[in-house]
Amino acid sequence: ELSQDQQVLISYIVDAHNKHRIPQDMARKLLQEQFNAEENFLLLTEMATSHVQVLVEFTKNIPGFQSLDHEDQIALLKGSAVEAMFLRSAQVFSKKLPNGHTVVLEDRIRRSGISEEFITPMFNFYKSIGELQMMQEEHALLTAITILSPDRPYVKDQQAVERLQEPMLEVLRKVCKLQHPTNPALCTASRSSRVMAHER
């Protein structure tokens, strides 16, 4: 069972996760406009920048994050940004957006000139995340946990980060067992904050 405090923590993180998204006008451009390969690539890099900004806004709302040493905040974000972005992208792709949006997005990515060497593992990752059938609470918690990894390069006060991460790991373990009682695979994966490094 989740304690009252744990339920509050979950709703706080899920709200932050839902609130901070790619701006509407950028999403519209991605889905509607026709571009050549070079324009696709530029648009995707613009989107990546926006995504990082969205991620920082989410992170600022993780309870306790802003009480960390400022340079440690930077080190955590820098060390986790790519993993967290892939997690978020995987969620977008696995939600099966209406009207074939994921088809358009995938097509755009495949036609952006990015090497197949990167694209294939990326879509394989999205697929394997999709197969876990994670609920939004699990996505939000896993993203927060990924960002609050004490062993990122240049983090000075690892214990302060652990003190924030550990309660969230505990909550995720419980949520996982409650929501997937017959699927041990997800619970095993989420027990380790190194799941992202493995997937990478």
């Binding site: 920048t49 990082v52 920082v56 400022h70 905040q73 820098k78 940004a81």
Partner: peptide
């Protein structure tokens, strides 16, 4: 690619956001 985007710059600016307000 992440370093080419000036990842740290983007992060620093975004973190400073509230302080400027």
């Amino acid at each position: 690619p992440a370093s080419n985007l000036g990842l740290e710059d983007i992060i620093r600016k975004a973190l400073m956001g509230n302080m400027e307000e």
